[in-house]
């Protein structure tokens, strides 16, 4: 699967680009699911692949759709490579790797929006400008959505509208996105006409 093309949207909707090699004293690659293919594409473009891999730490987890390319990731031959069963399981290690990095480290994020958003949030918290973080979307387009009413986050939202997994309200999914929360915004769809909920459409796969 190649990189994802999203329809034009509002200015908070994250945009992604192809990962490009950049000079750096260390390289941290965080990927899930089909993101492994973006990493392979990146590594193919590196002039001195062995030098980069000797300074590279890869954190990987299978995608929300079950895509698992860990064997390929391991075969890249990075100095450090790690596979977590899920994104939440990856977060503690990610936090330590990010917090102990030095300036000159390049961050490459690849895969689904849930993984990219949560990694970006962790890196931004160090004071590194978010614009310096490279992100390429691959794989599932399911969304992490925060209910604006109860503040609970529902992972892997596939339909619009959907039922908040915390408070049960019927929410429509806006393209409005918060990097601080690493989630899109969900707003009650039947507030003005309680009970009038349109049929759920599978918008994110």
């Amino acid at each position: 699967m190649s990189k994802t093309n999203f329809p034009p949207s509002i200015k908070t909707r994250p945009v992604y680009a192809e990962l490009e090699p950049r000079p750096g004293t260390a390289h941290v690659i965080i990927a899930d699911g089909e993101g492994a293919e973006a990493v392979a594409h990146l590594l193919a473009k590196v002039p001195d692949r062995a030098l980069m891999l000797a300074r590279t730490h890869i954190l990987y987890t299978p995608g929300p759709n079950g895509t698992d390319q860990w064997a390929a990731v391991l075969a890249f031959g990075a100095a450090q490579a790690y596979c977590a069963p899920t994104i939440p399981a990856m977060l503690p290690r990610m936090a330590k790797v990010v917090a102990e990095a030095h300036m000159g480290t390049q961050f490459y994020l690849a895969g689904t929006e849930g993984l990219i958003g949560q990694a970006e949030r962790e890196i931004m918290m160090t004071g590194l400008p978010f614009a310096a973080i490279q992100k390429e979307h691959r794989g599932s387009t399911v969304r992490r959505v925060q209910c604006v009413h109860c503040k609970g986050i529902t992972e892997n939202v596939a339909t619009d509208p959907f039922k908040c997994s915390h408070c049960g309200l019927n929410l429509f999914v806006r393209d409005h996105y918060s990097r601080r929360i690493a989630a899109f915004q969900g707003v009650n769809i039947d507030a003005e006409d309680p009970g009038l909920v349109p049929a759920a459409v599978e918008k994110f796969k």
Binding site: I10, K11, T12, R13, H176, S178, R179, R180, Q185
Partner: peptide, 22 residues
């Protein structure tokens, strides 16, 4: 509009939902 959701956004981002003006 939700401060809790928009806090931390830049000028273009927190105005993102406004139609036509962009």
């Amino acid at each position: 509009w939700s401060l809790d959701f928009d806090v931390g956004m830049n000028f273009m981002e927190w105005h993102a939902p406004v139609p036509l003006a962009h």
